[in-house]
């Protein structure tokens, strides 16, 4: 509880200082407009605007921060209204608010909506009051129709999207873990590639020179495109002839 209060205090301090900054920059702007309106140029004017807007951004950042306790949960209650001039209030507001009366409280404490909003609300209410029951019903059904139509469209789109994503999940099988492992162990350890080698070693283990022979023979036997050819028609003759043919190439 105490921590919360502390946090609240800190937030209020931060907001207050930001507000002061904002006030000062607005004041500066007004002063500039009043005293230097003849020599002020666009860039300076816009700079001033930029300063004000940056202060506003900072303020909204503080309000949007998660550590900031939700201020809207707090209520401000006017405890006493009076028609008399209040000197301390005048001092506090720098001469802007002389009286804390029922006239200004709704505006300052936001107990009533913005004038523009209020106006719009009144307009809407008037419009609603002027409608006959029949017309109202008609409009309601029309509105429902439009809404259901939109709902239909959204549902259809969602269905299509789901079908697409499900089929995409089907296509998604573009790689196979088993194949990855087979390939990686083949490249890394020669798994699945060693079969012929071990045979060779077994048959010629007495001969020290067997492995190198095997090593150099394929170096010559596989030429560009050679593997592809062998794949297509792996006949014994072709593979046997290849090394002989390619020896020239290698020694050239």
């Amino acid at each position: 509880m105490q921590r919360e209060e502390k946090q609240m205090e800190m937030t209020l301090d931060a907001i207050l200082s930001r507000l002061n900054d904002l006030k000062m920059s607005i004041g500066g702007m007004i002063q500039k407009l009043e005293t230097e309106y003849e020599i002020i140029n666009w860039p300076t004017f816009l700079d001033n605007f930029a300063i004000i807007s940056s202060h506003l951004t900072g303020l909204s950042k503080i309000l949007a921060k998660e550590v900031c306790p939700p201020l809207r949960n707090r209520t401000v209650l006017p405890l006493m209204l009076s028609q008399d001039r209040d000197e301390s209030l005048i001092n506090l507001t720098q001469g802007r608010v002389p009286v804390f009366s029922h006239d200004i409280v709704p505006d300052y404490l936001r107990t009533k909506p913005d004038p523009i909003t209020e106006q719009k609300l009144i307009q809407g209410e008037q419009k609603a009051a002027n409608l006959t029951a029949e017309v109202a019903m008609k409009q309601v059904t029309q509105y429902n129709k439009v809404v259901s139509h939109v709902l239909d469209m959204v549902c259809k789109a969602r269905e299509e999207w789901e079908i697409e994503s499900s089929t995409r999940a089907g296509i998604q099988q573009t790689s196979s873990m088993a194949d990855t492992h087979a390939l990686v162990s083949a490249v890394g350890m020669g798994k699945g590639l060693k079969a012929n080698v071990s045979l060779n070693v077994a048959t010629g283990s007495a001969n020290m020179m067997v492995p190198p022979l095997r090593a150099s023979a394929p170096m010559t036997s596989v030429s560009p495109g050679g593997v592809g050819q062998i794949n297509k028609a792996p006949s014994g003759i072709k593979t046997n002839i290849k090394p002989a043919m390619q020896v020239h190439q290698f020694t050239r």
Partner: peptide
């Protein structure tokens, strides 16, 4: 692909049906 050798079985040159 495995290097086609004498003892190599026909058609078994490719290690798998995938590209690394």
């Amino acid at each position: 692909k495995a290097v086609p050798g004498k003892q190599q079985e026909i058609g078994s040159e490719t290690v798998s049906q995938s590209y690394l």
